[in-house]
Amino acid sequence: MTDKLDIDVRDNPERSRYEAVHDGEVIGFAEYDKTEDVVVFTHTVVDSGYEGKGVAGQLVRFALDAVRDEGTREVVPQCSYVKGWIAKHPDYIPLVYGQAKPAAD
């Protein structure tokens, strides 16, 4: 992996996706379907010219943090990238639908 690229990530609910933006251009996205209870991440794409620069990881972290901060839904990671990213970042496993939640203090 090369240097991490500085991007902005935003939710674009009209297109049902989180978008990675660099220099005003969308260079990647994570598509989702939302229900009352879950956010299903279906597909993640990064433009080939930006692969290996940490775009997908930043994008997925932002999206999962947004779900966690909202606090009302769980995540269904159908996308293989999102599924693999969560496996490498176990602190996000409690967000996954059907996974054990930590005990309340």
Score class of each variant (00 low, 15 high):
T2E: 07
T2P: 02
D3P: 04
K4T: 14
K4C: 04
K4M: 07
L5W: 02
L5A: 02
D6T: 13
I7Q: 02
I7N: 03
I7P: 03
I7Y: 00
V9N: 07
V9Y: 00
R10N: 13
D11A: 10
N12W: 09
P13A: 06
E14L: 12
R15V: 01
R15W: 06
R15H: 15
S16A: 12
S16L: 07
S16P: 08
R17D: 08
R17Y: 09
Y18A: 08
E19N: 09
E19P: 02
E19S: 03
V21N: 05
H22K: 03
H22T: 06
H22N: 10
D23H: 10
D23F: 05
G24V: 00
E25F: 06
E25C: 03
I27V: 04
I27H: 00
I27M: 00
G28S: 09
F29Y: 11
A30M: 03
A30E: 06
A30T: 06
A30F: 05
E31C: 04
E31V: 05
E31W: 00
E31M: 02
E31F: 02
Y32Q: 02
D33R: 11
D33N: 10
D33I: 13
D33E: 13
K34C: 05
T35F: 05
E36C: 00
E36S: 14
D37M: 12
D37R: 14
V38L: 13
V38H: 11
V38A: 13
V39Y: 05
V40P: 04
F41G: 10
F41N: 10
F41W: 14
T42K: 14
T42M: 13
T42I: 14
T42D: 12
H43I: 13
H43P: 09
T44Q: 08
V45W: 04
V45N: 06
V46E: 07
V46S: 08
V46N: 01
D47Y: 10
D47E: 15
D47T: 08
D47P: 05
D47W: 01
S48W: 10
S48Y: 12
S48L: 12
G49N: 14
G49C: 12
Y50C: 04
E51W: 02
